[in-house]
Amino acid sequence: MEQNKSGTMTKLKGFLNDGSLLLVIVILCMYFSVKSPYFFSFKNMMNMLISVSVIGIAATGFTCTLIARGPDLTTGAMMALSSCMAALLVSHYDMVWYGAVLVALGTGALFGLANGLLITKFQIAPIVVTLGMMSVVRGIAFIFTNGITIFITEPHLKWFGSGKIFGINAAVIIMILCFLLLSFVTRNTIFGRKIYACGSNPAASRLAGIKVNGIVTVLFTLSGFLSALAGLVLAGISSAALPSAADTYNMDVMTAVLLGGTALTGGEGSVVKTLLGLLIIGIINNGMALLNVPSYWQTLAKGALLIIAVVYDRIRRMMQATA
């Protein structure tokens, strides 16, 4: 009787919750496939994935910090710094490639750790700390390189962007691995549960024996590390490292994460849905480019999409609230 009706309602709501992003992707794919036969080819799909890989890698870490406490705005600047460091250490300081990679990743983790400690020790809002750190890191990138572009000739560093494993681009594989790993961690581990608990209610988390500060610090460290990794991929793809790179990537990362439904208020969101949000951005950019829509329109579409998604989310919540 009632059971059945509420069952369908539940399914419907479940779909509104989880299925709608997928539905948007399917509709977009169908539309662009009809408009351009090239769209759904393996080559084009791979191009699309490569184009979002840098944002995607950083977005995995960003999702986690946002669920637990707040946004990590250092992301874009960190990408620039790590790519410059790796490139410069190899080309100007003759460092062996893996040494340079380790230093770059370590630097990312270190600045992430600094963010985490500032946020937890002094209880400052993450948006403030990471905004400041964004400028600091970007500044270091400029000072370090003297503002010049460094071209990458070292094959291993190039591999991060253009290497192939079983015909699939390394950048895409790295991104997928990041998504798989963090999705597993957030869904299936104790640590993952604690991330959500911290974001949902820090005071209650503390009283449930969860070391909130530790978790937040780890997450920002992780986010710094992943941003640095994204920076290496970025350098690999473009075969160059420049200190002014990735300056709009913060916003792109945030757009993907919010499009995926992670709440700014914490405690809610998922890494998998971030992937869906990311794909939507990728598909729109790629499809519009194929249809020769000027890139200005892509920017507009991305923004409009985010607003539509957030409005949609509000409506969904209002429906839930009355239920």
Partner: peptide
């Protein structure tokens, strides 16, 4: 204020301490 995880579900609220 300091007991419930408001936007987590019933089960996640129960197991918050005993995760291990």
């Amino acid at each position: 204020a300091d007991g419930l995880f408001g936007n987590l579900n019933v089960m996640e609220n129960v197991s918050a301490v005993s995760l291990k």
